[in-house]
Simulated assay, not measured.
Amino acid sequence: MANSARNNGPDAGDIGLALYQVLRSHGSSVPAKATAAAGLTEEEAAPGWAELESLGLIRPGRMPDEVDPIEPDTALLGLLARQREQLRTQQTALSEVLTSAESLMERYRPTVQRESAEIEVELVISDERKRQTLAEFNASITTSTGSMHPGPLPASDILAQSIKADEELVRRGIKVRAIYSQSVDSAPRQRKYLAQLSATGVEVRLAPQIPFDLLIADTHTAFMVANPENPSEAAIVVRGSALIRTYVALFEDCWLRSVPYSAQAAGTFDPDGELTEQHRTTMRLLANGLTDERIARKLGVSLRTVSRLVSEIMRYLQADSRFQAGVLAVTHGLV
């Protein structure tokens, strides 16, 4: 019978029934013996034993490791008793949920509604409305502004307008900070723009990667593109400090990971330039393919310090990636 069952691929129910019949015939038995008596291997019998246990058809025997068969009617009564207990538990849990829901709706929700009234998200589609919104954005700044730009840079006339606007902000005593992708510092027109921007008093930094375009006015308004893949499409304006805090934290993290822009050093590479021993050690570890975590352990510094060192090395070597930085370090004989 067992051989025929294996050939026909029995399901757990057939196997469970075969094991149950053995137990009914032999009484209390160690599962291994009952399995052998049914002509099954332990692997074949496993789903059958699982079914018998789930249905409540077996229980521990008087002797260690033995199991006893249970009458189906008794097993059914036990199953119904467990179900009643589960329903009572669910009813208790449901009552607790309803009590909590009332507390949330009556006590806490009004507070959030008051905060939400101070939050506004606007989708800006037309170019004219974008220009008007940016003008309003600049006029609303009172102390500081930060921006991130992954590139590529827009047309020259737009860059000229941007420099003029930033120059006006600096004249008003506004602290202006801007982060650009390192790839921006790779062509004469782009380097010229960065130099002009820096000359107006804007603090400019370069980073290996920037997630998306972002402008922040103080801590109350953020302006960003709706589709990072196509910056010329619609823009999103978010107002309200409850939401802006997240964007401020993102900007500050990118700022700490970026490298200060130097117009004098832009576009140049001096293999005999100033590099600390820490930079050179980091370059050697980069060239060997180590991760930031392993480099941090080797140098005994934090991950943030390693990120800064790697960014400075990439800026120094004019590399677009960690891999390229390692290759250039070897090429120039720096490691």
Rank of each mutant, 00 (worst) to 15 (best):
V202Q: 05
V202N: 03
E203R: 10
L206T: 12
P211E: 12
F212V: 07
D213R: 12
L214I: 11
L215R: 13
L215S: 08
A217I: 09
D218F: 12
D218H: 12
H220L: 13
F223A: 08
F223P: 06
F223Y: 15
M224V: 11
M224K: 10
P228V: 10
P228T: 07
N230R: 07
P231G: 01
S232F: 00
E233V: 03
E233A: 12
V238P: 02
V238H: 05
V238N: 04
R239C: 04
R239W: 01
R239F: 02
S241R: 14
R245Y: 03
Y247C: 05
A249T: 13
E252D: 15
D253Q: 14
W255N: 08
L256F: 06
S258T: 07
S262E: 07
A263R: 05
A265K: 14
A265R: 14
A265Y: 07
A266C: 10
G267A: 08
G267S: 05
T268A: 11
T268D: 06
D272E: 15
D272Q: 14
G273C: 08
G273S: 14
E274W: 04
L275I: 09
T276E: 10
Q278I: 09
R280N: 02
R280G: 01
R280H: 07
R284Y: 00
L286K: 00
L286M: 14
A287T: 03
A287N: 02
T291V: 03
